[in-house]
Amino acid sequence: MRRIFLIALLFCSGLARAELPETDWLELMPKSDQKALEEMPEIDHNSPEANGTFSNKGGLKQSKGLPAVMYSSKTVASMNGKHIRLGGYPVPLETDAKGKSTLFFLVPYPGACIHVPPPPPNQLVLVRYPKGLKLDDIYTPLWVTGTLKVEKVSNDLADAAYALDAGQVRVVTDADL
């Protein structure tokens, strides 16, 4: 009996160290939004933001006149409360006294904070990470693991439809690819 217990303990501890499978960003969009994105016409990138000129509110807010799916904050209810691992790029919002980012948006592609149009709200995730992470470059891809919540977040920079309380944040390495 003791041998079975030890084998079970070793097996379970090995599973605890294994990473969760990657959650795809499209899993955060309802099927109707995915279909609308597939059918969306080309977007004109000629704007002041594309030329490097930003309004006083920042560059992640959606400009007027885009297809409706680009403003979508529709969420997938089954994702609420789910423990996930999501890959993306940081848009820092707050840092602690040591200069570590404790609050940031996670976006699906690099440069979303400076290119237009930004992702729709259901493709932006507010990450809360009290431990903080030193971010040297917003083009550095991250893995974020934690509990996802359907939570509408709005600030001067962006609107998000999800928030994630992160238990772990780490830089993506070559071994991950």
Rank of each mutant, 00 (worst) to 15 (best):
G52P: 13
Q168C: 02
K100P: 07
L66K: 02
L126V: 08
D176G: 06
G58N: 10
S154H: 09
A50I: 03
I7A: 14
Q168Y: 01
D176W: 01
E39N: 15
T147K: 01
K98N: 14
Y162S: 02
D165S: 14
C12I: 13
P30T: 01
G14W: 08
I4D: 13
K82D: 12
G167Q: 11
A163M: 02
A8Y: 04
P41E: 01
S13D: 09
A36H: 10
E22P: 12
D33I: 09
T75L: 05
G59N: 09
N122Y: 05
Y89D: 11
E42G: 11
G58Y: 03
P30Q: 04
S73R: 12
S78Y: 05
A16H: 14
L124T: 14
T173K: 15
L148Q: 08
M79T: 09
K35L: 14
Q168R: 12
K57P: 03
D174N: 15
P130V: 06
K134Q: 14
V172W: 02
L124C: 09
D137A: 03
A36M: 06
S101D: 14
A97R: 15
I84N: 00
P118T: 01
E27M: 14
A163L: 07
N46W: 05
P48E: 06
D159T: 14
F11R: 06
P21S: 13
R3P: 00
M79D: 08
F105T: 10
S78V: 11
L126A: 13
H115M: 04
K98W: 06
A77I: 12
E19A: 13
R128C: 02
S78N: 07
P90N: 04
A97W: 03
R3T: 12
Q62S: 13
P41D: 04
G99D: 07
V116F: 10
D33S: 11
L164A: 08
R170G: 02
A68N: 09
K134H: 09
F105E: 07
A160K: 00
L20G: 03
L133K: 13
M70G: 04
M79P: 00
I114N: 06
G146P: 15
G81W: 00
K134R: 05
E39L: 12
A158C: 07
P130C: 02
P92N: 00
Q123N: 15
L106V: 00
K82V: 13
C12V: 14
T147G: 09
N51V: 10
S73I: 00
L6N: 08
P117D: 02
L135H: 06
L157P: 08
Q123E: 14
A112P: 04
A97K: 15
P141E: 04
M29I: 09
A160R: 05
